[in-house]
């Protein structure tokens, strides 16, 4: 699949933002006044910034409000509702913290659950696609939620939670690569099933329908940078593990903290790029590619 920068930024930034909102809503850290203002501003900038990045890849962003209508069947529509609901609940909770030093735990609790559900809905947009076997497995929502919650814990300075969550996220990611690498083969889709000609013999794509490229190939048969996949996997894991090492220091200051955040951000961006670039869509089978 084509790793569109807008979609990578959207999932990474909004994942971090909603991860922060989860911890803030759950009362970690329990801050008020200017300190709360700073935390909530960063969380909202990330969440809303990510969501607005997602509209950049739309053909008609001016019609984006129509995406709220089909929540009964569409995960994309559900994500739209959940994100807005989460932002609204957390806005009330945040206003209480910032202006009244009040702790309206009902709003915070509901907001925190909605924030996590939003990230889950984002993941389900990809997980639901049977056409991309690498995505169509339970590790996809698990990873989206883990990376969001661990990044959120790092940004809200909840190191007691962040460090074990990083370790779990890395382990799940490695497991997801292991199962993902064979997902297309085990899905049962092949050039034989795609053409229905498998019982006649072995099938080979002889001639594509067009001499140039097309939308399908640009969007779904993206094979360009896969040769670097293994190096990028290692880089991503190292970047994700860096905060673990940096923050194990006895009294990590702001500088080490900022380094840890940057390493985490770069690690998740690399992972998300790989998430798209490595995903094989079954339509590639018609072109003799994967």
């Amino acid at each position: 699949m084509h790793p569109a920068p807008s979609v990578i930024l959207f999932t990474v930034l909004s994942g971090l933002g909603f991860g922060m909102l989860f911890w803030l809503g759950a009362g970690y850290p329990s801050v008020t006044g200017w300190s709360a203002f700073a935390f909530f501003t960063v969380a909202y900038l990330l969440a809303v910034g990510g969501l607005s990045a997602s509209t950049f890849h739309l053909g008609h962003p001016e019609r984006a409000l129509k995406a709220f209508t089909q929540w009964r069947s569409s995960w994309l529509s559900r994500e739209a509702w959940l994100s807005v609901a989460s932002l609204l609940f957390m806005a009330v909770y945040g206003a209480g913290k910032v202006f009244f030093a009040a702790n309206w735990i009902l709003f915070g609790g509901i907001g925190a659950v909605l924030a996590l559900t939003t990230v889950y809905a984002t993941a389900m947009i990809y997980t639901q696609l049977k056409t991309v076997p690498r995505w169509n497995q339970p590790t996809t929502p698990a990873l989206f939620v883990l990376l969001s919650v661990s990044g959120g814990a790092l940004l809200t300075n909840q190191l007691w939670a962040a460090l074990p969550l990083f370790a779990i996220a890395i382990a799940v990611q490695i497991y997801a690569w292991k199962t993902g690498d064979t997902a297309l083969v085990t899905s049962g889709s092949s050039i034989e099933s795609a053409t229905g000609l498998g019982d006649k013999g072995s099938v080979r794509a002889f001639e594509p329908p067009h001499t140039g490229t097309n939308y399908l190939m640009r969007e779904m048969v993206f094979t360009v940078a896969r040769k670097h996949a293994m190096k990028l996997r290692i880089i991503a894991v190292v970047l994700l593990a860096l905060p673990l090492l940096l923050l194990l220091a006895s009294a990590p200051g702001h500088l080490l903290g900022a380094l840890a955040v940057l390493a985490h951000l770069a690690g998740v961006l690399t992972l998300r790029w790989l998430f798209f670039a490595e995903a094989e869509h079954v339509v590639g089978l018609y072109y003799g590619k994967r």
Binding site: G59, H60, A64, L129, T131, E219
Partner: peptide, 16 residues
């Protein structure tokens, strides 16, 4: 006139 051009339907179709 309702399509926002998000492309998700094209991703969901196995046949291109």
């Amino acid at each position: 006139s309702d399509c926002i051009g998000c492309g998700l339907c094209a991703w969901a179709c196995p046949y291109g």
